[in-house]
Design a protein around this nucleic acid. Structure first.
Lengths: 254, 254
DNA sequence: ATCCGCAATCTTGGATCCAATTTGCGTGCC
DNA sequence: GGCACGCAAATTGGATCCAAGATTGCGGAT
């Protein structure tokens, strides 16, 4: 349901607003708020800009299709254009933004087909990661897992919600110590993070016990059951995301 | 386009060889040769620098562990340090280089475990991509596939060898039109590209007919057979790469 | 009145310049 | 003689400045 977001007015700036006052800000204030959260001491300003912009994209402050003007972003964050450019390059590599020749960068949108792809691949990769991890599972890890699962379920807010779940899955797959595998999963989760967030805000939380269910299966050592829980969870989220995407697909097309 | 670049001081890196040993010197000329191949009109210098450095890493001109000094690279390529930095950031996202705090970038090495991971994941992803693609396979695509397979088998040289194979797999998996899936596969292939190249140069080419074998299975519509050919091919290459990595693992460590 | 072309302005991309941090080396002290 | 502290040089990271290209708005011509 639109309108519920605090900073949801970002989609409205489509084309007419670009020239007049659009130079500085549809989302300036929300972005500044994010920037404030990251004002802590970073070793390099570029990584700070990256984190700010990534979070802004993930929580919808910068919506898909949004034009990203380097100078505006730089002024809003409070740095020069150079670290912003670095951040944009990284975000392009992450698949979150798209560079159009010499015409600037825009927040990349994910089509329904691509979202389906992401979840199909995640099913493959994560079930495999889970099986590998279960071979090396330890009781201590189970304890931490259960803890993190509770935290993740309790978390409601946007960015923290994604973070909590990331920690849970990092712990879940971490036993196998497969950095490349985890990196791939992280990339895929990053691509759909925004849409999951939207779904979480809009839809309900019927997935609340799936974490515990998963931990229980892992604890019991039943790989097939755990895989099935994971698979059904992922496909469930996938379907919800797809429904949301097709629902508002025509609006945010470009 | 008629830009007579000031390709001046290119040999500047031999200024001081105090403790080089195996770290920083020997690649200036080879890198320049690569730079020459890419001197064609690029829209942006940054992408050119990226291509040059990526190829340099892939064909071993810049070996794993190599220290990448921005100014040296910039002078060798003939541009400023800024596009080099952009390229390095992209390469970091690709997992080919690694930034060490404020101490510069080095060419990232792939451990044997990580290489194994890459191939394990590739088996998962590529077999799935293959099955999806076979659902949409067309006779015309088979024809092009057979053509590309022959080209790939004929190709011997380094960079072109990888390129030819890339085209073959792009055509093979392209029928399914799954951009995210293909992007993931490309990333993984990029990570091991250097080692495959080394293996190709060192070892033999007993895999010559696997392309044709694969195409035949695809043409026959036998998904299981095609998957098995692909799987055995990938595990074969994997084992060769692993053997090579463990063989010279102690030497090129540092 | 509409369409094509030109020019001005805005925005990206690149280069040079400056500061901050790290590293290597020298000296002094233990 | 060895280790530690400090200084100096080099290299990375950031900011400001400059050029190139694209888009848009305006004007003229058909």
């Amino acid at each position: 349901m639109p309108g519920a977001h605090p900073s949801a007015s970002l989609v409205a700036m489509s084309e007419r607003e670009t020239r007049t006052a659009g130079a500085s800000a549809p989302s300036a204030e929300a972005l500044q708020k994010l920037a404030g959260r990251h004002q802590a001491g970073y070793r390099s300003v570029g990584t700070m800009a990256y984190d700010i912009l990534r979070d802004a994209i993930l929580d919808g402050t910068l919506a898909p299709g949004q034009k990203l003007r380097q100078e505006t972003l730089a002024e809003t964050i409070g740095v020069s254009r150079l670290p912003v450019r670095s951040a944009l390059i990284q975000l392009e590599a992450d698949g979150l933004v798209e560079f159009h020749a010499r015409r600037g960068a825009v927040v990349k949108a994910l089509s329904a087909e691509q979202a389906r792809e992401v979840y199909d691949i995640r099913v493959l990769l994560e079930i495999d990661a889970l099986r590998h991890s279960m071979d090396e599972m330890t009781p201590e890890r189970i304890v931490r897992l259960r803890e993190l699962g509770r935290t993740a379920d309790a978390e409601e807010e946007g960015a923290d919600f994604v973070d909590a779940r990331t920690q849970f899955y990092a712990e879940l797959y971490g036993a196998a110590a497969r950095p490349v595998h985890w990196e791939m999963i992280e990339q895929l989760r990053l691509k759909v993070g925004r849409y999951v967030l939207g779904w979480r805000l809009v839809g309900g939380g019927d997935h609340g016990h799936s974490h515990e269910e998963l931990v229980a299966a892992v604890e019991a050592g039943d790989a097939d059951a755990a895989a099935e829980v994971l698979r059904s969870h992922l496909t469930g989220v996938r379907d919800a995301v797809l429904a949301m995407l097709s629902a508002e697909g025509g609006a945010a097309a470009r």
